[in-house]
Design a protein around this nucleic acid. Structure first.
Lengths: 205, 205
DNA sequence: GTCTATACTCGGATAGAC
DNA sequence: GTCTATCCGAGTATAGAC
């Protein structure tokens, strides 16, 4: 077993410290000294702090993303809307293993979060859009876009939710039962999608 | 007509620059030189950059917040769920006048956003929770908390949505027709709340 | 009570030697 | 590929003028 490369040592130390202390509160000097490497090594391997953070995050997002597509492909063509929503939400919710990192990312640097969303998640948003569209007949492209956006809002907001949910619901560990979280998201999302579809016909009539 | 005070000059210059260039990209030196005041005046009036940003933002949030409560109070006791959602969403959506600032805030410093939410919006979240609860019989406190959280996710996500919605829906100015935005939020939210309520009974059965 | 000049410190980035 | 040394921008703190 080889020693991990300098690059990997930086990634590992960064992941730990960024999640623990926060993104802004963690300096590159913190990371490099924890990793036992020189400060300038970050610049060599990642160029900037932002790109290091992106690399740390993408390492975790990529497999999750792959899983979403696999689940979607495995779905029967006549599977109900709720099942599509399950494929959409479940892998993301299960990233809660890295929820400290996700939450930090979301709270402190939503711009980077968004950047990853654009480069890694949006491409297959199209695939999901199609699956939803088939199950919501009569929805135009604009309205479908809005509804997708609402779904993303639900999903993202939930990931960074722990402290808020604790205050709002009284539940001391609101993200513990991941299946229950997914079920809530699916139910709320399906209800919203269907009601939205009905409303729009009135609205545009 | 008096000259604006140093404090107001800082607030005005800060609001402009923060919205235009972003929070992280705008230095205190940018702000003070645009305002024609000394750097240390910020420290005197606001203590830190974060507190200045908060002051800028709260100046716009406060009237909006007041309006939400006024609308809620004016509602008939038997008004439907959709009307309550209208009071919940409409004033926030109409803050889109300051949407550049809101979006910057949301994207770059969600921690501050959240802080304002806690101090200024949560107190009357309880009032809304009660109004929703009356119209969704049989929903326990935990489930109500989740649903409120989903509503907040919809709302917040929508405010910072312009570029995303443009890409996702093809609509070049997705936030132009504010009433349509509110209608979409209300419909989606009502559908989600009701479906969620039905689901939970199954889920906990 | 208000404001200014100035200095301090931290942190990210970079150049160039090895 | 890695390290040393250095630079510069930015937020913050303080002393003192008015």
């Amino acid at each position: 077993m080889n020693d991990p490369s300098t690059k990997d040592r930086i990634l590992d130390a960064a992941e730990l410290l960024l999640a623990e202390q926060g993104l802004n509160a963690t300096s590159l000097r913190d990371i490099t000294s924890a990793a036992g490497v020189n400060l300038a090594a970050v610049n060599y391997h990642f160029r900037t702090k932002d790109e290091l953070i992106l690399a740390v995050f993408i390492r975790r997002v990529e497999p999750m993303n792959q899983l979403r597509l696999t689940l979607l492909d495995a779905l029967a063509p006549d599977a109900p809307l709720e099942d599509v929503l399950g494929c959409f939400f479940r892998p993301v919710v299960h990233m809660a293993k890295h929820k400290a990192l996700v939450a930090r990312m979301y709270v402190e640097r939503r711009d980077l979060f968004q950047q990853i969303f654009e480069t890694h998640l949006r491409p297959n948003a199209q695939r999901f859009a199609q699956a939803f569209s088939q199950r919501l007949p009569g929805l135009c492209r604009v309205e479908l876009g809005w509804r997708l956006h609402f779904l993303v809002g639900l999903m993202i907001h939930t990931l960074a939710a722990e402290p808020v949910l604790r205050a709002l619901s009284g539940d001391p560990e609101p993200l513990k039962d991941l299946d229950a979280v997914v079920a809530r998201l699916v139910a709320f999302g399906a209800g919203g999608l269907r009601a939205g579809a009905a409303m729009v016909e009135d609205f545009h009539a």
